[in-house]
Amino acid sequence: MKILICISNVPDTTTKIRFVNDNKAFDTNGVQWIINPWDELALTRALELKEGSGGKIEKVSVISVGSHGAEPTLRKALAIGADDAIRINAEPKDAYFVASQIAAAIKDEGYDMIIAGIESSDYNGSAVGGMIAELLSIPNVSSVSKIDVEGDNVVLKREIDGGSEVLATQLPFVAIIQKGVALEPRIPSMRGIMMARQKPLKVVEPVETESLTEFVDFSLPPAKAACKMVDPENMKELVNLLHTEAKVL
């Protein structure tokens, strides 16, 4: 069995978000880039599954669509434990563009399980995983919070509004994961970092595809009015404010 994790290279979650170019582009100045938090959990789970599989899972690969600047993030994935990496050499334009690139690059590579995060923490598209599944005409299971491999079968838990379900799926398929698949993301070890330098990182050129959407401009939320402090000895006052001023009670 071969597993592929789709990795999005995103700004660190504490990044102060700013825009340049008349608010038409994200200001990448001074930004620290990280593996999208869900993709990191996906990779962690894939490695756990591989280690517990007694050799049945031969390989865990990672793939990302991005320019040269995305390579440190892929190297980090290799340091965490991925066996090899693919970078598709293009600036991601929209989810359809990214999914088309990944689908084209992997269609003959024989991956059994392709994992994507439920969203990318930058543009919050929630789309790449499902689009890859449709482009490759294979099933997908979304909002997955648990993945187990039992013999030749993959068993998944998926979250639904107000509960959860257990599913079985035919292979190959795409799992779109969220919180729960792994508890804590794995941190690269010193040895892992050394080994990552020798692991294969293949760069492939993009195929011709269109993007269906484009960002016109960005804005920041309006500044919040100062917080009104209420005397901790006077909760009656708080309830009164929530009723008469905020009108939420």
Binding site: T13, D122, Y123, F218, S219
Partner: peptide, 10 residues
């Protein structure tokens, strides 16, 4: 976008 930290027109 950016998990609630900004808005975008698309």
């Amino acid at each position: 976008t950016f998990t609630g930290k900004a808005f975008a027109n698309v």
